[in-house]
């Protein structure tokens, strides 16, 4: 399916069906994240349950320490 991630269209493989899958696919699993799907924040406890569908707008922000 195709998702819009941080403003850019991205094709993701069929193995990606939940927010957790997407995080793994993007190799962001070890990071502190804020995830929003269609303008709604998805709490970390819901990442595995939250399903994604074609065309969803996903924002994924990871905190960085540099400065």
């Amino acid at each position: 399916m195709t998702l819009t991630i941080n403003g850019n269209a991205m094709d993701v493989p069929e193995t990606v069906s939940s927010v957790s899958d997407l995080i793994t696919h993007l190799e962001l699993g070890s990071k502190r994240l804020v995830v929003e799907v269609n303008q709604e924040i998805i709490d970390k406890s819901m990442h595995a349950e939250q399903q994604l569908t074609n065309g969803d707008r996903v924002e994924i922000v990871h905190f960085v320490g540099g400065g």
Binding site: N6, Q39, E59, V61
Partner: peptide, 8 residues
């Protein structure tokens, strides 16, 4: 070229 602005 990514950006996100999230209401938290």
């Amino acid at each position: 070229n990514e950006q996100a602005s999230i209401k938290v």
